[in-house]
Design a protein around this nucleic acid. Structure first.
Lengths: 221, 221
DNA sequence: CTGTATAGATCTACACTGTAGAACATGGCG
DNA sequence: CGCCATGTTCTACAGTGTAGATCTATACAG
């Protein structure tokens, strides 16, 4: 119980750090700022979070914990997979600046394993051969993380109603941009694009389940 | 010509910064360290690169410039696309720490546009409808960037020959990991996995070209 | 050759960073 | 009561980005 108390303090520090990063950006996330928010001296954080690097690792843990409830086991495999994917993207919008940490830092915490396990389970239920499961998991998680980050980090160029603009920025050497000037002038619908990408990946997944495979996986190897 | 001189100095600074980051990591990339490598006082960098943020932007420019030669226009559309993708992954291995900047910072420089344009061109040549081209470009570039980063940043958990280990790390609540313990014990072949992902994306692309579409795009809209 | 303008490099200084190390308080347990 | 462990604070140090003033060297006008 006393141990739960010390863990609670650590949580308090991490949530304060996460809130601060979300409000003022990753650059503003200093030990002193976090300490001030908790109402304590900077050095008081160290027994709880180790050092700043460990604090950042703690933040990705927080993010993963926030994502974990989406990994329920109810429903068809593709609705489960879609739920996890959408939760991943929603997380990016909720934590625009800290989301980068998910891609920058390797996470092998229990929560991370549980999340991956949920995706593994969905792919197995889909009938994907075991040898392909880890690879396809990486494919969809890369899409979810990469797309969401690109969206909130400002990669993905904005549409410019004045056509040819981007083509001219390249010194005129952008013929395909010119050919696409009509569609490039229209603003993108990121919600729809994310779903479309997800649809494509679903087709990829089903394309890998052997035709004779049984629907339920308890029929064994 | 004198103006070329000042540009040359900027280039010299940026290449020094890139080399330093590659050798000692992004954290070691300080203005003072870059200045020392160039053989100059820290403040002497500022007229050339603006400030540290702009210097980092300059680094992604350097990376893109290094990637650009892969965007040739020769060959079938799918060999061109594969060439760009492989170049993107090779770039990640050459610049393990700085590669993150490509995902973290939006790039709308001329070189970036030229690169995207090459992908647009390949997709158009494949017969993809114009409305789908930008989306599919983002899909493949997200895969290339995200996968390569995941690889060099240490996301993607390593294989552990001692089975069940990762499942146990999750408190036993990782049934799919247990079911997959055989395949999870084997080391992954990232080269093969990248190519497999690329194959999948190629199928996605061709699945979007209408059956009646002509092979050559100069036949018009 | 002299004087001057201009661009680049330097020096100093400031606020801020992460964190090591010592000192301090405060509670529980014998 | 003493003792110990745990959490916190204080002080200090090396290192960061960069503003502002100063210096230097080069190029050109007379």
């Amino acid at each position: 119980m006393a141990e739960q108390g010390v863990e609670a303090r650590r949580r308090e520090i991490l949530t304060a750090a996460l809130a601060l990063a979300d409000e003022r950006g990753l650059d503003a996330l200093s030990m002193r700022a976090v300490a001030a928010r908790v109402g304590v001296t900077p050095m008081a954080l160290y027994p709880h979070v180790g050092n700043k690097d460990a604090l950042l690792d703690g933040l990705v843990d927080l993010l993963l914990a926030e994502l974990l409830p989406a990994a329920g086991t109810a429903g068809q495999w593709h609705v489960r997979l879609r739920a996890i994917a959408h939760a991943g993207r929603a997380l990016a919008h909720r934590h625009r600046t800290t989301y980068l940490l998910l891609l920058a830092r390797p996470a092998v915490t229990p929560d991370a394993v549980r999340l991956v396990d949920a995706i593994y389970g969905a792919l197995l239920d889909a009938g994907v051969p075991e040898a392909q499961v880890p690879r396809l998991e990486r494919l969809v998680s890369t899409f979810v993380l990469g797309f969401s980050l690109g969206e909130v980090a400002g990669r993905f160029p904005p549409a410019d109603p004045r056509r040819h603009d981007r083509a001219e920025a390249a010194g005129g050497a952008a013929p395909a941009h010119q050919e696409l000037s009509a569609v490039l002038a229209q603003p993108a619908d990121w919600d729809a694009e994310f779903d479309a990408g997800l649809d494509d990946l679903m087709h990829v997944i089903t394309s890998h389940v052997p035709p004779a495979a049984p629907v339920h996986r308890q029929s064994g190897r």
